[in-house]
Design a protein around this nucleic acid. Sequence first.
DNA 1: TATGAATGAGAGTTCATTCAT
DNA 2: GATGAATGAACTCTCATTCAT
Lengths: 226, 226, 226, 226
Amino acid sequence: MSSSPENATRHRRSAGFAGPATERELPTTPRGLRTRANLIDAARVVFERDGFLDARLVDITTEAGISAGSFYTYFDSKEEIFSAVQAEVEEEMLHPDVRAVDAVGDDPIAQVRAANRAYLESYERYAPFMRLLEQVASIDEDFREQRRKRGEAFVQRNARSIKQLQDRGVAGADIDPQLASYFLSGMVARAAYSRFVLGEDWTIDQMVDSLTQLWVNALQISPSAD
Amino acid sequence: MSSSPENATRHRRSAGFAGPATERELPTTPRGLRTRANLIDAARVVFERDGFLDARLVDITTEAGISAGSFYTYFDSKEEIFSAVQAEVEEEMLHPDVRAVDAVGDDPIAQVRAANRAYLESYERYAPFMRLLEQVASIDEDFREQRRKRGEAFVQRNARSIKQLQDRGVAGADIDPQLASYFLSGMVARAAYSRFVLGEDWTIDQMVDSLTQLWVNALQISPSAD
Amino acid sequence: MSSSPENATRHRRSAGFAGPATERELPTTPRGLRTRANLIDAARVVFERDGFLDARLVDITTEAGISAGSFYTYFDSKEEIFSAVQAEVEEEMLHPDVRAVDAVGDDPIAQVRAANRAYLESYERYAPFMRLLEQVASIDEDFREQRRKRGEAFVQRNARSIKQLQDRGVAGADIDPQLASYFLSGMVARAAYSRFVLGEDWTIDQMVDSLTQLWVNALQISPSAD
Amino acid sequence: MSSSPENATRHRRSAGFAGPATERELPTTPRGLRTRANLIDAARVVFERDGFLDARLVDITTEAGISAGSFYTYFDSKEEIFSAVQAEVEEEMLHPDVRAVDAVGDDPIAQVRAANRAYLESYERYAPFMRLLEQVASIDEDFREQRRKRGEAFVQRNARSIKQLQDRGVAGADIDPQLASYFLSGMVARAAYSRFVLGEDWTIDQMVDSLTQLWVNALQISPSAD
DNA sequence: TATGAATGAGAGTTCATTCAT
DNA sequence: GATGAATGAACTCTCATTCAT
């Protein structure tokens, strides 16, 4: 809004994020594949720059160097190309430069710290995209639901870790692992959002220290005896 | 999007949330004041039902029972009436039915618990409005910044409480009160969002218990000796 | 096609003729009523000149002297304004200048002749509109069905007349009144179409004579004894 | 319209049905001939299924199993391939399985009956194509004119038959053979249209009986003395 | 010659905002 | 001051046709 040009006009068509639907098949020729890839890259640039709502298809095609009509050779709607961008970015996020996490060893505190750092650094690297995700989530209920479901898996994994710590007597026994996992993950996620989207001026080190401390205290994790 | 009618299109002129701007003076006649109030109430209904983006001015004026053109007698833009709605809701939120918080006494744990419960109950009561706030924040940077600043005060107040607990030796001394306040508040806020906007199916009691426990542990608050 | 300008482009949106649907209420102000009427008149001009398919909304609004966007103040689609045109024309057709048919008396042959003449004269007067009806019927199945149902009533009425003639012994007894009514009415309708749309060069008198003769013979109507 | 997908949009460039124009020469290779034939068959399928207007060239080429661009190797426009389809269907219609018509003998009533039956049965067999013809005729004036001229010959032939009957004293002498031929043929054609396009629920036997009776009465054909 | 991607000229549609009555 | 009709700038989406490979 205020970040858009004067008198900007924004259209939305509700093609929907409801699901993958009839996944359109990829173009067969190298040229087609190249154009499609260009389009996705262009869309990412425009989305991250203007937000989902202010992004016009014509901006995307212009950025991609093709005509407006050609958009529809590859995608049916802004929502559909957004999903493609999302897939691309997620693909990209899954190629970490051999995460140091594994080198951490068994110390649960070190593990929490490493996980928090990894999360924050990833968030920072993809900050414009993360902001975009937040926007789309706040706009579209289906997308929100989709995202919630994905988060579920992450929370469950964390909950199991907490449970194991409890079983080993390393974490407070009277803590609900599910809720603790959910709420503490949320704390970190929101801290990242505050830092990288809202622009709070903390260093990552500060954040890692503080978040890890709060997390560890909250779960009453005792330092590893090793 | 998914919740909007097929092919709905929304326009926006970026009047902006940048600030109070030239605060428009209130109408002088009782009738004018009544119409203005109707308009705000109508806007709240429509905003909460359709979201900020899908809300059309004509829907608001229709809901208010006045003509489309009369809107501009009272407000200059959708953003401006949104601010008025926000002011009204916040006014309403400040009239608590004699909050029991004060009855809590000096026990810091009981205070944290009471504060968490109060927050969640208030969030629940205003859930549609809270969702609306999230949406607008994700859309508009100025609004986001405005909101961040307001939150600041709240965080500072909490930080001072934490500092006092530390000074009394009731909370961990090595905790950064500012960050802890920010992050723990964020945890609660996000939990409320997950529950009342995303629809996670927790009871408020569960949430209060778990959040209070995590909060208290995180700050290493020891039970009051009294 | 060939009758449209070179490289003309024709769009069709399937709003549908399925039914009256949610009949939009009339404008309340005189100005609104005037504009709506202008729009209908303009639509009739454009439809009759260009056909349904080649008629563009912007042609209609231009003809009506209003802006393109204003169209949607009154109608939702080309189909909807077409229905309004149809209603208007039918209204107009129902104001005959005191049809002479009644003056014909009891002679069945004279009655058939009078009916045929009235039909042909009316068809001639509304020839451009009749051509339009044919086109729309050939394009849209719902409209076709609608029209078929309306014709039904007319056929039934004729069938009853035939039945009465048979009962009075004035028409052949072994004729199926329903089918005869349908087929003979169809013969007259098609003759009118051939004359006024296809442009066959018969005089109305010729047509009346010949059609009446065929009709009368077909039903074996004997001349009234009077 | 109602039969087309939501919001379908159709473009047309008026290549026109004006005439054979520069008849494009047939492809020379067997492969080319096969592709051309496939294209025509595909076009017939698509035209009959979707109507002329809603048929997209890409649908036709897809149905034919060739690429979009290749269309122009064989035809210049939708109109042109339509003409080819028409030619093909008419060719097909001219290969009757040794029509029993000739076996009818000299009885004029039996001849009329046989002709009517043959017409109706043929119409039924080609009903989707006949509907298509009606549509195109209603859309394009040149095509309409073309068709009218072709019908002329048929009407003339019938008119001559009627004349002969009159000369033999078997039909009413005061009937205009031209007009009678035209109008009665029209009656049968329209009955067929009502049955096979509009969906009236008559049996062919009913129709043959009734139409023959009306036709014979109309012409005052007396039963053959043989 | 076949391919299929690219084009581009529109048409329809929306709605914040203006303004004559 | 209120009304509600009128405006017009945007934007999406289609598909016959072209053209580089």
